[in-house]
């Protein structure tokens, strides 16, 4: 966190591969830059691109840890590039694209398509009772419920949890941590009319919560600190109570 250990010379090893270029093969490329105070990987990578290799591909948008664009493997750990301060890292920084997602090039991967498919599969939207009535006052909801939904809604779909999960890495069908979190988010929303049986079908299988074998990396890695493990426990118990009913 501290921005004070400047004067280091940072060594980057960055994964390079441009699928659009027939001459390109996957390899690691080395760069060296001087560390600056409060330097984030957002700043470092832009400097590398602007001063050393303008062909380097990576994704940033908000640069404030809120849009979820910049997930990448930083020394083996899925992290948000914009949030990662170089002062928290050793001198040698290895960067890889997130696994699981389709590679666009270098550090850039297609998370958007993965998340859209996940949303479609789990029908991640409010299944409303009736059409919106513009003349009516809003339905009430107590603030605790709203807060609970919001806690789950905070996921920024960065894909770090998915990349960190052993199961998601080997099974394309698994909804993944973020997917399970989405299901939980809608299942606890009183505005969603899907009943227990609907949820049971979605949750209770090896693509759902029983795909999770409790590796717990997702929870430890989530940059938004979502309580993912509590979410799975909630889903498991929901599946069990539904079946017992």
């Amino acid at each position: 966190m501290s921005g004070n250990n400047a004067n280091r010379r940072l060594k980057f090893e960055i994964f390079r591969y441009n699928p659009q270029d027939p001459d390109s093969t996957p390899h690691m490329q080395n760069f060296e830059i001087d560390e600056l105070p409060y330097m984030s990987l957002f700043m470092a990578l832009n400097e590398i691109r602007e001063k050393h290799d303008p062909s380097l591909q990576f994704d940033f948008a908000c640069r404030s840890a809120i849009c979820g664009s910049c997930g990448m493997m930083v020394n083996g750990k899925p992290s948000l590039g914009c949030r990662t301060q170089t002062s928290d890292l050793p001198e040698l920084i290895r960067l890889h694209p997130l696994p699981v997602f389709k590679l666009v090039g270098d550090l850039s991967v297609d998370t958007g398509i993965w998340f859209r498919e996940m949303a479609e599969k789990s029908e991640a939207w409010i299944h409303a009772k009736e059409a919106f009535d513009p003349a009516a006052q809003e339905d009430r909801m107590d603030d605790e419920t709203a807060q609970k939904i919001y806690d789950s809604d905070r996921c920024i779909e960065c894909g770090c949890c998915v990349a960190s999960c052993g199961v998601a890495n080997v099974s394309g069908e698994f909804a993944g941590p973020a997917g399970l979190n989405r299901m939980a988010r809608f299942s606890m929303d009183p505005r969603d009319t899907r009943d227990d049986a609907d949820w049971f079908e979605l949750i209770s299988n090896e693509h759902g919560v029983f795909g999770c074998i409790g590796m717990m990396a997702c929870h430890d890695i989530c940059p938004k600190e979502l309580p993912l493990l509590e979410v799975y426990a909630y889903l498991r118990r929901k599946a069990l109570t539904t079946a017992l009913k």
């Binding site: 020394n75 083996g76 052993g166 890495n169 080997v170 074998i213």
Partner: peptide, 30 residues
Amino acid sequence: KIPAQLEERRKMIRLGRDLKSQAHEESLLW
């Protein structure tokens, strides 16, 4: 729950080791 393919198991092991070096143990413990 054990991945059938060698390649998949290797992937899991590699991931687990990398994460272990980043202060996360449970993946490798699995």
